[in-house]
Structures are given as structure tokens and as C-alpha cells.
């Protein structure tokens, strides 16, 4: 029997299949859409093709309480911290950039959450911000990396508000700034918004779907804070953490 962790995020639903020792056997990411049950079922179906699944499933994220399945719900922040501590086993700061939220988490040497923060009301610095900008500029987010690598200038985009940032970008375009420099500036603004959330201490670990899909963000974090890493599969860590938080409980 294998355990399943599901992180039902605003943009993507992330699932992990975990063995009884807590090791990840498989993972699967689907678009959330507007039906949390449908998204989760796709994950369950995929895992069920090859493995027998144990219930309840362990959930976190916006849709954690919406499933028609037996579930044990968790905080995605506690779950993420658990996963990161399981991997690194040391005190660290985490910045997680998701579709709707940016989170800062500080964990102690013993793996306990000492402090955390989520982004304020606006979306600047989150995945929604990137999607909105991509839509406005008519450039698919998947092409951002290519453009940003060609940047020759360090443009600053200061607005906290996504709508104002779009206006700011229109101003930049009007003033003749090139697209690669603007996209580089957009990445920079995400990093700026994250770095001002709190004082960073110890190793900074970058997680979430946005840095996973936009690796230049990690490069820009490293320019500001040298001791900075991003684990592989960082998008699925909270889902994994959900299972890890409950592993010993179910064993007993």
C-alpha cells in the first residue's frame, strides 16, 4: 500500500506517491482548473494504474478540504517546511513562489517553523503576476527564459500592484526599452518582492512552481544571496510534506 499526498494549489494540483518509509515513488502535476475533485482524481487514477493506494490521502493547499475522498488536511506551509527539513536537516530560510502566494518560512535546527509570512494582498511576486504580464505583452511564459537571457540592461519595475506594474511596463515599452530587458526586469521584480518579505538567514531554499519553470529567478536570487539553492521537483514538496507529517502517526 502506498500513501498519496496532494497539494491543491490555485493553478496546479501536485500529487506524490510515497512508500511506507516516506520515499517518493512517483509524482504527477495537473492543472487545477475549477474542479478540485477532478484534478485530484486524475492524480489518484494515474497512481492507481501501477500501485495500490492507501486512504486517507493527505492534502494541503486551497482545495484541501473540498475533496469527496477521505482526507487528512494539513497546512501547506508546515508541510513544505517538513519536506525541506527532511531533505536538508538544518536551519534555513525558504521562499516558495506559487501561483497565488509567495511564502517566506524560517525553520530552526530542530526543523520547527520559527517564523513565516505570506505575501500581502496583491499578486506582485507570484505566478499570477507573470501570467498577467505574459498575457498583456502577448508573450507565452514559456518563452520568458529565452528573452531574459538576451537582456543587456538591468531595468527596475517597482510597482507592488500587478495592474500598476502593467502600466509601468507600458511606459517602459513607450520609452523604447527592449523586450528582453523588460522581461529580465519582471524576473528581478519578483525577486525584489520576495527578498523584502523578511530578513534571510542561513541557506535560502527556493521552491514552488514559478522558480521551477523559470530558472533565471534562481540565478537572480543567487546574485542577491549567495547561499541559495533550489531542490529538484520543488513544486511537489508540499504534497510530499503532507505525507511525511503523518507518516509516524499512521505507523503507530
Amino acid at each position: 500500500m502506498h500513501k498519496v499526498g496532494i497539494d491543491l494549489g490555485s493553478s496546479y494540483t501536485k500529487g506524490v506517491l510515497v512508500d511506507t518509509e516516506g520515499k517518493i515513488i512517483d509524482s504527477y502535476v495537473v492543472k487545477t482548473g475549477f474542479d478540485f475533485n477532478k484534478a485530484s482524481q486524475k492524480i489518484i487514477d494515474k497512481f492507481s494504474e501501477s500501485h495500490k493506494i492507501e486512504y486517507p490521502v493527505y492534502t494541503c493547499g486551497y482545495g484541501r478540504e473540498q475533496l469527496d475522498l477521505p482526507t487528512v488536511t494539513n497546512s501547506e506551509i508546515t508541510a513544505l517546511a517538513k519536506a525541506i527539513y527532511t531533505m536538508y536537516k538544518k536551519n534555513c530560510s525558504i521562499i516558495d513562489i506559487g501561483g497565488q502566494d509567495t511564502k517566506y518560512v524560517k525553520i530552526t535546527e530542530a526543523g520547527i517553523v520559527e517564523k513565516f509570512k505570506v505575501n500581502r494582498k496583491c499578486a506582485a511576486g507570484t505566478g499570477s503576476f507573470l501570467e498577467e504580464i505574459a498575457f498583456r505583452m502577448d508573450v507565452p511564459p514559456s518563452e520568458f527564459k529565452e528573452y531574459a537571457e538576451q537582456a543587456t540592461d538591468n531595468i527596475k519595475i517597482n510597482s507592488y500592484c500587478t495592474v500598476f506594474a502593467v502600466s509601468e511596463i507600458i511606459g517602459l515599452i513607450k520609452n523604447g526599452n527592449k523586450l528582453p530587458n523588460i522581461i529580465h526586469g519582471i524576473y528581478n521584480s519578483i525577486v525584489d518582492r520576495c527578498m523584502e518579505m523578511s530578513l534571510i538567514e542561513h541557506t535560502l531554499i527556493i521552491t514552488g512552481g514559478i522558480p521551477a519553470n523559470h530558472p533565471m529567478i534562481l540565478t537572480l536570487f543567487k546574485k542577491r544571496y549567495e547561499d541559495c539553492v533550489s531542490p529538484d521537483q520543488s513544486q511537489i514538496l508540499a504534497a510530499w510534506g503532507c505525507v511525511l507529517l503523518n507518516l509516524n502517526k499512521t505507523k503507530s
Binding site: 486551497y62 497546512s75 501547506e76 506551509i77 508546515t78 497565488q100 502566494d101 520547527i112 517553523v113 520559527e114 513565516f116 505570506v118 500581502r120 494582498k121
Partner: peptide
Amino acid sequence: NGDLCDSRCYSEEQSIIAIETFIDQLAA
């Protein structure tokens, strides 16, 4: 983040997750 009367300033889901995490933190 929220407001006394203006519910448009309050993100309920985000705040619930933060409160649940905070209680996890106190439990730990």
C-alpha cells in the same frame, strides 16, 4: 491583512492557511 468592515481587503483562504500554520507552529 484584512480590514474591520471592508471585506475586499481580506483574503480568507490565505489567512486561514496562515492561522492553521501558526497553530501548527505553536504545537511544535
